[in-house]
Computed example of a mutant assay.
Amino acid sequence: MFPWLHRVDRVIEPNCCVKNSSEVGCSKSVEWETLEREHRVYAFLARGCTLFARREDCIAGALSASSTDNYPEESIRNTLEPHDRVLRRASYWSSKGQSNPAVPETLTYKLVADICVITEISVRPFQAFFQWGSPIYSAKSVRFRMGHPKAPVDDPMGEPCDNFADDNFVWTYTSPEFAMAQENRLQKFELPEPVLCIGGILQVELLGRVQKQEMDGLFYICVSHVQVVGRPLSPPFSVEILEPSGKFVLKASSYTPPLLAENGSCPGPNAYFEGPARDLEQILHLLRGEGVVVEYDWNEEDELDDEMAL
């Protein structure tokens, strides 16, 4: 399911601390405590990937565009708006013009959580209703990449920039290429399987140009809106990237599911952990996508709590 978890270096949970040698005791006891801790964290993670609230607004802010024709009027920030007109003005991002229609463009975003499960991404090309013929400046196809920055990025609420080099990011997932229609509508692209984005960075690759602008004869790509659907796993979970290895520390800061806990109808923490610690290996196989089908033995009270939560 999530092969990216093979890069987990270690797991930390609330009140987890490193004991000194006088407190450790025998190695078997330490190993058992580690297994129990990992069992709790991975069991909660497995449930969270399907039970945490699904959101259709998983973008926190715009980081950069590979180019922008007229800034700030045609900034990538406009793609955060769901409508192509705001206060009677067109709202969209536009690339710079190119004579070569094969030149690609990229839009890079910060997601709402450093660790989240992404299932689908939608892109709406922009139709220039103020130009003769109302041309639609779509791309030929799109592709998506997810990963993490090599160093902390600026506040996504700050000013986005152009040409934020790909060297600043480590891409851990690249989707297949999806054909885009030259139509003014929100076009949904479902990923082949849910993707665990570790690091909270999403990049939209716009491949190929189809529309020339009449006044200068150059090809442009314009986008009015980008939408990302998924399940943020924060604040219960967070990650710490360990460079240059690319591994990360998985931290469980609490065992309270986000959002759903506000109405008091969520399962209690014990509902996520009950079951023998030997099931940790099965949970790990499932999450890491190693081809093992697991039917986890949740008790009847868990099922009842789940129904109440829905």
Rank of each mutant, 00 (worst) to 15 (best):
W171A: 08
K140N: 14
L35N: 06
N15H: 12
S175Q: 13
R77S: 09
C17W: 05
D216Q: 14
L310Q: 09
E281D: 09
L35T: 01
L191T: 08
A165H: 09
R77I: 04
G97S: 03
C197W: 03
F178I: 10
E274Q: 14
F52I: 01
V41S: 06
R54F: 09
C17T: 10
K28W: 01
F248K: 05
K96Q: 14
L196Y: 08
L191R: 09
A252T: 00
R124H: 08
V11A: 01
A62S: 11
R10N: 05
L186P: 00
V123P: 04
A179S: 08
E262N: 01
L218F: 11
Y272E: 05
P72N: 07
V41L: 11
L111S: 02
I283Q: 14
M1R: 12
I201D: 05
P3A: 11
T119Q: 09
L35K: 10
S94A: 15
I283N: 12
R278Y: 15
E262I: 01
I221Y: 07
T256Q: 10
R209D: 06
H39E: 10
P267S: 02
G147A: 06
R85V: 13
D216R: 14
R185G: 05
V229T: 14
E214T: 11
E159T: 10
L280K: 10
I59R: 03
V112M: 01
S27P: 00
P3R: 12
Q187L: 07
L260T: 04
S95M: 07
C17E: 09
S64P: 04
T119P: 00
E177C: 12
L80N: 07
H39P: 03
V123W: 03
W93V: 03
N299E: 11
N70A: 11
L284T: 06
C16E: 12
D114K: 03
P232E: 04
F130W: 15
Q227N: 14
C58N: 07
L186T: 01
R54T: 05
W132H: 13
C161Y: 05
E281K: 08
V112C: 05
Y109T: 06
T108L: 04
G246M: 01
S91R: 05
E300M: 13
S138G: 01
S253W: 04
Q227H: 11
A53S: 12
Q282K: 15
A252R: 02
W32Q: 14
V103D: 13
L5N: 04
P194F: 03
N168W: 05
C116Q: 13
R40T: 02
P257S: 01
I121P: 11
Q282W: 14
R89M: 12
L87T: 13
P192S: 10
E74D: 11
R77G: 07
C16D: 15
P235D: 04
A43V: 00
T79R: 08
R55P: 00
F219D: 08
A90I: 07
S75V: 04
E159A: 08
P160E: 08
